[in-house]
């Protein structure tokens, strides 16, 4: 159906890179300001799931969520995040991509984007199980990942959606989105 053109591809990867840089910038700032606030840290964790759903809401084509997530992760890996970021980015992006695919890439709303974030969160949890981050007492486990799910929905659903809306207002989305049938039919009159 809607195949990716070269410009879509380049834009997707560029979005990933911009996200990678912004996240790094913020993470540094945050580490300096609040080193020991675990709860706030979990509440902001959803930021790391944002890139894939955001790219999909913007470009609305299959494959974009996964690709943007990999791009952001590769960039973070290069500027000091290390190889682990790469595997997390891949798995989280894949989860978001599969969620969009399960809606046949036809839904672009807050709920679907939020669910994609939650899917990424679960995928990340799966990796944490192997890494060893999830070997916590049950209350700590519940608090940590509970907050993370809430944050995932908030960032990927609400925030990403609103930012895409703001970008639509700037007009740049006209460069990328496929022209719909209704818009063609407008020309007929």
């Amino acid at each position: 159906m809607k195949r990716l053109k070269f410009s879509d591809l380049l834009i997707t990867i560029m979005i990933g890179v911009v996200f990678g840089i912004t996240m790094k910038f913020w993470d540094d700032l945050y580490t300096v300001v609040k080193p020991m606030l675990p709860i706030a840290r979990q509440l902001l964790y959803g930021m790391w799931f944002m890139v894939g759903p955001f790219a999909f809401l913007l470009i609305r084509k299959p494959g974009v969520a996964l690709l943007a997530s990999i791009a952001a992760a590769s960039l973070s890996a290069f500027i000091g995040g290390g190889f682990t970021v790469l595997i997390y980015g891949f798995v989280q992006g894949l989860a978001a991509e599969l969620l969009f695919a399960s809606f046949r890439y036809k839904k672009f709303g807050i709920v679907v984007a939020g669910l994609a974030g939650v899917a990424s969160c679960f995928a990340g949890f799966f990796l944490d199980l192997f890494y060893g981050y999830a070997n916590l007492e049950s209350w700590a486990l519940f608090v940590k990942y509970g907050l993370r799910v809430v944050s995932a929905f908030l960032f990927t659903g609400v925030f990403a959606y609103l930012i895409v809306r703001a970008l639509e207002a700037t007009g740049v989305t006209n460069l990328i989105r496929p022209v719909s049938k209704e818009e063609y039919s407008l020309l007929d009159n």
Partner: peptide, 25 residues
């Protein structure tokens, strides 16, 4: 947090999307 995210990223994204489009073309 949301306002900060919007204020920082929207202009950055708008510029980068235009630039990427130009590079691709």
């Amino acid at each position: 947090i949301f306002q900060r995210l919007r204020m920082y990223t929207v202009p950055l994204f708008a510029q980068s999307i235009r630039r990427a489009q130009r590079v691709a073309v």
